[in-house]
Design a binder for these strands. Structure first.
Lengths: 337, 337
DNA sequence: ACTTGGCACTCGGGATGAGCGAGTGCCAGG
DNA sequence: CCTGGCACTCGCTCATCCCGAGTGCCAAGT
């Protein structure tokens, strides 16, 4: 269907267009890449490529630019992931190693990814549903209010204020704390729901009302607030020129946690780098962008996802390389702590 | 110097220009606002206003637009703060009341402010240096690592991993925790530095090495990390048309916590709404924007600042009204918890 | 001392049209 | 199947023109 030269032509078109942002014509193609055939031959190839939907010309008698389908073929068969040099890897590693807590790790990861790719970076916090509880803490605020603090093994700390139906004293708090830690410590968050259901039996009857309030907040935190946390950075890398409909709608989408969750949700958990091009993202507002994302985790356990968002006219090999490298090192850092 | 009519003309120019984004000429001025004089008279007034630097014409023989100085006069003497209707206030209140923890309060505040003003909203977390410690928690991660959790009375929860020089057992942790809570509970964070300095005397000698590690992390968290947290929202309200040098530099500035800190730092702590116009912000990248900000706090205690950032061509009365109202209610919510 | 109508002037912006050049499709010959 | 040649298309750029909004100034009126 498409012989080797036609593929080479497509690859050349993508590369040139990505770097120049201008439709590429047959002549400049044979010049820059040393294809040893004439422009006319290339034109014939391009005619075929266009017919098959891999490229289009924005105006009659202008050069060609790749379509989503063209980029897709490019990513799947014509380009690899650009590996990083040893020096670059080292730089990434030392930069991430400077972080001192989870927030800082995530912040640095976002900045790093944005800078490496010159695109918008998107990093999801380690998913709550994949973490285990490391500690539960109850801090009295006043007679009828507690602060509940959940600490997970991935370093996330979730807090919620609990409004108690009655008042409590220090003793009952101690007792409740003990029960909670005894039963929840080290348990997967996904299991917590069922465990909590059995807990009321383990507290004294007269404490049950207050305990129930605490339990329900725990459940809410894990279920209702199941929406995960996502951080965005590098928005200034968006250039108005790349988005015909204005980058407003892109900015809007990037500000909506929910939208971003949907976006990343469409990528699978695996650590492999995956690319979604243009309309393949069925998230309104980002249909004219491409997303390169990967899962990251400590060791073999997938924790969450990260990636970059940019115009379809994107340097995919480099972006994929950066996402892979950053995912790997961020995972490593988290494994250590 | 400037008689009443000239001031009225300036006000009219500002109002028209803000709403239409087009230079305003003498004719349209007498039409829309019912000044009962002729265009020629207005022209004379405008000539004076221009001479004094309140307005300029972008091109010879176009209408006039206000200068920074013009906006300044407008804000100081020609416009009040637009009060909110009862319904609007109620909407604000109920929206903010839905929040269940500090993160949520801040997030809602940002969204609300951005939506009310259709500008970029900037909200600073309650300042650490103005909070007191409510509780200190130590959670062992492994033999030589602790997670230190500081909970403040403003609801902020700060966490840091502490690398210990030696190993610790549950007992010594308990002891340390007790000492910390006994000495730090309820203390102003600003005082903590001096208190911590005296602490080593209160732990057993053989624990001092580990304790010192914990203490130094506490100090770092409060001093080195004295940089406060700021959240930005509504970036999609930025319209390219408003920023000649491209909104890229604005986006860049908004992504830098440090820059934002400097920006808000120039406003005083008081709860009064303050406006900085254009070049009055000596923060690079935001010299072509205006900032409307106010302090907020629970009760009479100032905690932090919030505000909006937008083009100098901004609806100041409304923005000021929104900032004032939101600051007030956010302060109220925080006071309750 | 202001205000007003009149008038000449300036200039930005939109419309029009010519010329250029990059790029294409097609065809006939190697 | 490749190649050179050729006619054709069209998007840009530039120059020109014109219009209209808006100004500044002045002389006359109140």
């Amino acid at each position: 269907m498409l012989d080797d030269r036609k593929l080479a032509v497509l690859r050349a078109i993508v590369e040139d267009y990505v770097s120049t942002n201008e439709p590429v014509g047959s002549r400049s193609l044979v010049d820059k890449h040393n294809l040893d055939v004439s422009p006319a031959t290339i034109r014939n190839d391009m005619a075929v490529l266009e017919e098959q939907g891999y490229i289009v010309q924005p105006h009659t008698s202008a050069g060609r630019i790749p379509t989503d389908k063209g980029y897709r073929l490019f990513v799947d068969r014509l380009s690899g992931i650009k590996p990083f040099t040893r020096a670059e890897r080292r730089a990434i590693e030392t930069f991430l190693n400077g972080a001192y807590d989870l927030d800082d790790v995530v912040m640095r990861t976002v900045r790093l990814l944005a800078q490496l790719t010159r695109q918008v970076a998107v990093v999801q916090y380690p998913s709550l549903s994949k973490s285990s509880i490391r500690h539960v803490e109850l801090v009295p605020l006043n007679e009828s209010r507690l602060l509940l603090v959940l600490i997970t093994d991935t370093g996330r700390v979730e807090q919620r204020v609990v409004e108690l139906p009655g008042s409590v004293d220090e003793d009952s708090i101690m007792q409740l704390r003990a029960v909670l830690n005894a039963c929840l410590d080290g348990r997967k968050l996904t299991d917590v729901a069922t465990i909590v259901a059995e807990l009321p039996a383990r507290v004294e009857p007269r404490e049950r009302a207050n305990a129930a309030a605490v339990f329900s907040v725990i459940l809410e935190t894990l279920v209702a607030r199941h929406e995960e946390k996502i951080v965005v950075g590098g928005a200034s890398n968006l250039t108005p020129a790349d988005f015909s409909r204005g980058l407003r709608e892109v900015l809007e989408a990037l500000e909506e946690q929910v939208v971003l969750m949907r976006l990343l949700g469409e990528f699978d958990d695996q650590s492999a780098v995956t690319v979604k091009i243009g309309a393949e993202n069925d998230v309104s507002g980002l249909r004219s962008t491409s997303v390169v994302a990967a899962g990251y985790g400590s060791g073999d356990r997938p924790l969450a996802k990260l990636g970059v968002v940019g115009p379809t006219r994107m340097d995919y090999p480099t972006a994929m390389g950066a996402v892979r490298a950053v995912a790997r090192y961020t995972g490593q850092i988290l494994a250590e702590s």
